[in-house]
């Protein structure tokens, strides 16, 4: 078994606050993975809002928000435990994030220890 991080990205901070229906869809997706006993860590949400997000750059330059050159920002992550990256990708495909123009990066975890 391998562990993969699924990193969620959104385009627009206004999509960050989900409607009750969207919330329900997300929870169903997460619950479905947990029900297959493939959830290693339910992860966290990363707040992109003012006062909760800053980026520190060289020479003590600090900017507001997570925004780099592109508009995309990371909204959260979870860690799943599956056989291989193909299976991880399959699980990611059913996430409702694509309906609102988001995407998911799948990355194998190499444990530091």
């Amino acid at each position: 078994m391998k562990e993969f991080a699924l990193i969620f990205r959104l385009n627009d901070t206004s999509d960050f606050k989900p409607s009750p229906e969207q919330m329900q869809e997300r929870m169903n997706w997460l619950g479905s993975i947990a029900a297959q006993n493939k959830l290693a860590d339910k992860g966290n949400t990363l707040l992109p809002i003012p006062g909760s997000a800053k980026t520190v750059r060289p020479d003590n330059v600090v900017t507001d928000g997570p925004y780099t050159e592109i508009k995309e920002f990371i909204s959260g992550y979870i860690i799943i435990r599956v056989e291989n990256i193909e299976e991880a990708v399959e699980l990611a495909k059913s996430n409702p994030i694509f309906k609102i123009g988001g995407n998911i990066e799948v990355r194998e975890i190499l444990k530091r220890d």
């Binding site: 929870m27 029900a35 959830l39």
Partner: peptide, 21 residues
Amino acid sequence: LQLYNQLILMEYSPVTALNRT
């Protein structure tokens, strides 16, 4: 269903997985 979603996130068990379904 939402309560089962939360429950299965807290602790996996086959019974919870089946009840959730």
